[in-house]
Design a protein around this nucleic acid. Structure first.
Lengths: 340, 340
DNA sequence: CTGAAAGCGCTAACAA
DNA sequence: TTGTTAGCGCTTTCAG
């Protein structure tokens, strides 16, 4: 015997399928005689009945699933976020469909199409491209979504973002407090919103603190990667500008700096300090352990999921956005400059 | 106007929905006049028609989704595997539903129930508990599954596993080649199949190579974690047994060793060598970079997904299993023993 | 080659 | 309070 259907249960309990349906569904249970309800529930249990959400979805046009659009699950930034999301989705009876876009707009479009055809009830979008006509269009089509890690440019969409600007500010302040005056910034790609927000915050903090505000101290990395970070730092070093510390756009870029330090015999932190961003796992195992700005990954996920579920429950609720506080994790890669 | 249905397309093309269905579905397209088919397809396109897999699934009892049962997405071992899985699922029109079990049998059971009620067509199971009545039961109920990272005990289920035994063997051989004779093993938890397979392989390799086969050299960690690894190594050190190298059950356990090295002033690799297992990201950034046995994570995922899709396509195909070769990545945490 | 009709499992009016 | 009827969007016999 295959898995029993509602009809089987109804039949066994001697009631009509509709009654069984009402009895089994907590939100309609009140409409049915308590005794009957109890009987139906018992029969359902003994038969091992599991409702079929697909069939239900067809009827109610609620699929019980939401789409998670992320660049690449392999990037250590995302697993905790996804985990956070799943942790609130699951008890709510929802499940998440993950797609990887590799930050390729075409792929992203195709993946989102596929999610939509799967009737997801909403989207949690964690991709970071700054220019995003697709999202605006989805917005217009009334697709429910929440953005993660970046605030949408112009469009009115709820978002969960770490307070990037404050994070960079903390990093720069920390270095300034240590005595650094010429601090470099290895900025993330300019087509990502985090990249530009952080770079902007870097410049303004430097100015606010009265540090040397030399445009030559800022380079832009092509990707959020170790290689790009290494390349950018090499360029900076070769250009001859002087600096005693670098604020990396993220941890991966900071790791690229480590490679350059090794290859050029630079002593970190004695002759050069670095601070990263994100606090990906195992940074404390590096030598030296990397000082970095920690973002509450998992919390980002849980908040995002909650926001989305709220949106599903109350479609006309105004877009609420959350800015999450960051913390500076001081480890061994930052120290006073040698000449201080 | 909402997203168009098959009926809309049929109507617009002046045919019956059934005909439209046949025309749109590649596998039944042959049954329909080529011209009509072309016309229907064109209309569908111009209307932006997307088939609704839910409705289709209800009819065909194929949901187009498979369940991925993993312990914890946050463990760096899994993201690449999941990515590999998604990469083959997606072009095949399937999507993966991820659940995290935290290796808790009750949670696992509940999660699998939920997956089944979602009508997944198969399961990719990456949890590692060795005793698994649940899986045997699923097996009996005819649930399609493939196991990842561990060979099922007794039951006949296709599996993709790294060749753990060979991996440990390579690690021990490497250390022996360096001149180590008293090698310790920090085994993974005994209720995980990888834990026991690796421990067994360790003992037999040690014997085969004629190294000191002292039972006191093997300790068992409670979890696959840094803390457990550290704890186990401390115990071993405190017990007074002598050894010059350790084979850690996995990378996390090896990282725990690093903590103990730091806390006790042990110089790795000069006075103590370590080798890990798995090759999780950023191991090359540690000081010293960790020598480890690399498993082809992503390939594990792709193979697993392929096996499952094969199983879906041909339900009666005999269980095929794949043993993937491993490679030793020699980095800086291993060196000849001091007294060699 | 195409249309008619039925039904996947469930729920939501409506009626009794 | 319960049963009847209809239908979500699609596929699949079965006729024609």
């Amino acid at each position: 015997m295959q898995t029993p259907t509602l009809r089987d249960v109804a039949h066994a309990a001697g009631v009509h399928p509709a009654t069984a349906s009402r009895a089994l569904n907590p939100s309609t249970r009140a409409l049915v005689n308590a005794d009957t309800a109890r009987r139906v529930i018992k029969v359902a249990e003994s038969l091992g009945y599991r409702p079929n959400p697909i069939a239900r979805g067809l009827k109610t046009s609620k699929s019980g699933s939401v789409g998670l659009v992320i660049p690449d699950l392999t990037n250590p930034l995302f697993p905790p976020i996804v985990r956070g999301i799943e942790d609130v989705l699951e008890p709510a009876g929802y499940s998440g469909l993950i797609v990887n876009t590799d930050n390729d707009p075409d792929r992203e479009q195709a993946q989102i199409e596929s999610l939509r055809s799967r009737q997801v009830e909403g989207l949690i979008v964690a991709t970071a491209l700054v220019h995003h006509p697709l999202l605006e269009q989805l917005r217009r089509e009334g697709v429910l979504m929440v953005m993660v890690n970046r605030r949408p440019d112009g469009i009115d969409v709820p978002s969960i973002t770490p307070d990037d600007a404050a994070g960079i500010q903390m990093a720069v302040q920390h270095l300034a407090g240590l005595g650094h005056r010429r601090i470099a910034h290895l900025a993330g790609p300019p087509n990502t919103s985090t990249g530009v927000v952080r770079a902007r915050s870097f410049r303004s903090t430097v100015r606010d603190l009265g540090l040397d505000d030399d445009p030559a101290l800022v380079t832009t990395c092509r990707y959020w990667s170790e290689d790009s970070g290494a390349e950018a730092l090499r360029e900076l070093l070769d250009s001859g500008v002087e600096f005693t510390a670098v604020v990396a756009g993220n941890d991966l870029i900071a790791l690229g700096c480590y490679d350059v330090f090794a290859e050029r015999g630079i002593d970190c932190p004695r002759t050069m300090s670095v601070v990263g961003f994100n606090d990906i796992p195992f940074l404390d195992k590096l030598r030296p352990p990397l000082t970095t700005v920690a973002i509450p990954h998992q919390q980002i996920g849980t908040e995002a999921a909650r926001l989305l579920l709220d949106g599903i429950a109350e479609p006309n609720r105004p877009a609420r956005s959350v800015l999450l506080p960051l913390t500076l994790v001081v480890r061994g890669s930052t120290a006073p400059p040698r000449d201080a």
